[in-house]
Write a protein that binds this DNA or RNA. Structure first.
Lengths: 111, 111
DNA sequence: TATAGTACTTGGCCATACATAGTACTTTTC
DNA sequence: GAAAAGTACTATGTATGGCCAAGTACTATA
């Protein structure tokens, strides 16, 4: 039980939420997502992102199309399905509630 | 991959943070914590809380003393150690950063 | 004594994030 | 045109924390 581990745990579920948000703004492929996450100081490695995308696709929240690239192998461009869009809406509620709950706990003054 | 599961994942690590905060405000035992969490709409079951307290104690972040009760078996009253207090400080930083990062992602307008 | 209530404990399950290694395709370099 | 470098995606195994469910132990009440 160290800090690093606690940080990993805190990210659980949030990554999924962030990824869905990024994709909701327009079609992107994995490297685009990594860039956005990195610029928001959320460091993610490929071994985390790709399996996550596969899970979301298998759950029916995402779909993709192959697009040829001029500088390497073809890319999978993702976008949200209707189902994915609804799911993102629910996740947003959950996240907002969680923030609010946590704030209640952490801002309460000493009894 | 359903909403309920996503909600469980989002809570990971946050519970630990909330518990430490509650204990930081004064000596409490498990039922006190459950009441506070419940009033902040964070529903936790015993099977989650007790193992968590044990982990935190074994990590040296908490210590407890037995206190007799007039309405049942004795209770473990917990308080933070110095180490636990420092750890809570670090967790707070981590949490604040995570909130900030997530906000960057979710409030960005469509490119 | 039997029942209900309170407090704490334990064992097994599952999903996610991560580390690591590997596949496949394209462009560049000699 | 073969080797090297770069890009994109895939696969496997590990660790952790939250949850369910059942169980122990003590006290008060009926």
């Amino acid at each position: 039980m160290n800090l690093e581990n606690a940080q990993v745990q805190m990210r659980k579920g949030i990554l999924e939420y962030c990824i869905l948000h990024i994709i909701s703004r327009g079609e992107v492929y994995a490297s685009d997502m990594l860039d956005e996450l990195t610029s928001a100081k959320i460091i993610v490695v490929e071994g985390t992102l790709y399996p996550l995308l596969t899970r979301l696709k298998n759950a029916g929240f995402l779909e993709y199309k192959w697009v040829e690239s001029k500088s390497g192998p073809p890319r999978k461009y993702y976008k949200l399905t209707d189902k994915g869009s609804k799911f993102l809406g629910r996740l947003t509620e959950t996240w907002d509630e969680l923030i609010h709950s946590t704030q209640m706990i952490t801002t309460k003054s000493n009894a």
